[in-house]
């Protein structure tokens, strides 16, 4: 079962129906208590960083998620859901991130890129296996340089470069996919990325 965290930050149905499109069972949970043994977790999210953290706190997910690394539960953060896994964000006014990944979330610099937000389909550049210990299961079997859909003004800057599984070029190269043990994060929207996106979600279900 894939448990999708519902914390009132946007459209969870897209992720849910994308997972269900290949027969995966899902449950939408708004409390960590609803999580069952063996469930994998998807943390979606659109909106503002502070609001998202506050909502997670309100529902008791922040403490729970911080303990995830120890519990070996598999989690995929999507877009803002990925950014929340980092220590801090330039978007935040007061709240800190969950700190499951070292590093921060930064705003695109208008001196570096012409248009902000970065909206549209852009290529993933999968990091060469030589720089990492093993292939990222999330990205297995994809076409070379697959195009996926991005829609964001902030990007993650991981402190540990080894956690970067794929980058994307937008004025410069930023981290588009990160992983660390059983935690995964993608900056783009797999649920909106047609067949390549569905393949990534399927990998999460079957291989991660």
């Amino acid at each position: 079962m894939i448990a999708i965290i519902d914390y009132g930050m946007g459209n969870i149905h897209s992720v849910q129906k994308a997972l269900e499109s290949f027969g995966q069972e899902t449950s939408v949970i708004s409390s960590p208590k609803k999580l069952k043994d063996g469930d994998k977790i998807v943390l979606p999210g659109v909106g503002a960083f502070d609001d998202a953290i506050l909502e997670l706190k309100k529902k008791g997910f922040d403490t729970f998620l911080k303990q995830e690394l120890n519990s070996k539960r598999t989690l995929l953060g999507i877009c803002l859901g990925m950014q929340l896994l980092f220590e801090r964000s330039q978007e935040a006014r007061q709240e800190k991130g969950l700190g499951l990944f070292a590093g921060e979330v930064r705003r695109f610099d208008p001196r570096q890129v012409k248009k902000i937000p970065h909206i549209g389909w852009n290529q993933l550049k999968i990091t060469k296996p030589s720089t990492r210990e093993s292939d990222c299961p999330l990205l297995r079997g994809l076409a070379a340089d697959p195009c996926v859909y991005f829609c964001h003004s902030y990007y993650v800057a991981p402190a540990d470069k080894k956690t970067i599984e794929a980058t994307c070029e937008y004025g410069f190269e930023f981290a588009a996919v990160v992983s660390k043990d059983n935690l995964y994060g993608v900056q783009f929207h797999p649920e909106k990325s047609q067949e390549e996106g569905l393949a990534i979600l399927k990998n999460f279900v079957e291989l991660c």
Binding site: V46, A48, D51, L80, P117, I119, C151, S153
Partner: peptide, 8 residues
């Protein structure tokens, strides 16, 4: 845009 993010 503050509430839902500029991107949407």
């Amino acid at each position: 845009s503050l509430k839902f993010g500029s991107q949407c």
